[in-house]
Design a protein around this nucleic acid. Sequence first.
DNA 1: TCGGATTCATGACGTTTGTCATCGCGAGGT
DNA 2: ACCTCGCGATGACAAACGTCATGAATCCGA
Lengths: 204, 204
Amino acid sequence: MTPPIRILLADDELLIRTALSQMLDLEPDLDVVAEAPTGTLAVPLAIKHAVDVAVLDLQMPGLDGIAVAEELAEQLPDCRCVIVTSHGRPGHLKRALAAGVRGFLPKTTSAATLAAVVRSVHDGGRYVDPELAAEAIAAGDSPLTPRETDVLELAASGAPIDEIADRASLSPGTVRNYLSNAMTKLDAANRHEACAIARRLGWI
Amino acid sequence: MTPPIRILLADDELLIRTALSQMLDLEPDLDVVAEAPTGTLAVPLAIKHAVDVAVLDLQMPGLDGIAVAEELAEQLPDCRCVIVTSHGRPGHLKRALAAGVRGFLPKTTSAATLAAVVRSVHDGGRYVDPELAAEAIAAGDSPLTPRETDVLELAASGAPIDEIADRASLSPGTVRNYLSNAMTKLDAANRHEACAIARRLGWI
DNA sequence: TCGGATTCATGACGTTTGTCATCGCGAGGT
DNA sequence: ACCTCGCGATGACAAACGTCATGAATCCGA
């Protein structure tokens, strides 16, 4: 008889975390040994309990799920990561895969799937929600340069050019050029539409 | 011995729905008799099963939690509604209360609280998360007129004035006036910042 | 080592926004 | 009856924004 799989569960919503934890614990071969309400707390906890699999919510205060996966890849390389998310943006999937994440699935999947993915990932397998995978392939890669992405991110709050320039330590003219480039690449009529598009695709 | 409380659970995320359902079912006096993945399906299901309490996620495709509560208030007046949400915006709380919702809590609360609120609400009590209540009081009422709200909502997608005017069947000049008014009232530097503020407060 | 991409900048130009004054109309309150 | 408020519109003006041409420095891969 193999020992149960040791799991860390990270999600900022206590209600969801407890519910999910109880549900996974119902499986005899799964054992939730640690829970974290933030990404920042998740890393040391995973190490301390030497968990086999980390089930990470994507959007959390502090470190997000992908950042946690990156940290764990370095500090606890034997730990496999599964990302669970409400909003399945193509860009997120790509970043997650690049971070060495082994499983990626939306919260709309069934409980049985989650348990199956945890087991499969623990055995060295991989799993990506087919729908999300298709979207990611269809969306392609971000056409934005790193700096364009930065600037667009700053623009997302709705700040005027001068403030963006200030926060990015750039001249206002440069900011406008970057935004103009981004708008062209994203085929948007103005920078706010560009933000909306980039956000939808997970590029910012 | 009183019969168990009959519950409908509506949430678009299957994983969360099952987890929450299992968790509530663990309580001997609570009985989840129906589950719905959308608001549209929730209403007839609640009626069919004559549920005592409806636990509704706020953000769902189709009818959102508040809309469901409004429907149920008409069609199944004996049913009490509890709203559960990830994003606790002050405006949503107000709308919910106006719709006759008896319980309102964020997903960051504990499982014990949820169960307690379901029981309390079933007995005719009310419960609002204290933090959210404080925020709602601090934020005050929306200063926007209905039409200003409409236009701001259309502006939220990042569309240019002409498109907004088109979709609202207004002249472009009128749209600019409404947006200008909204910006003044919300103390924003441009309409996109105004959208961000209004969204944060749950006014759009 | 050479070309290409990225980063940062400037100036000029036209368009889009934001602001303000002003108007008419209808609904609601005192 | 009067006044206020919300709704819808116009026109004029200034500021912000988007576009384009252009240039220089850096870095990276062929």
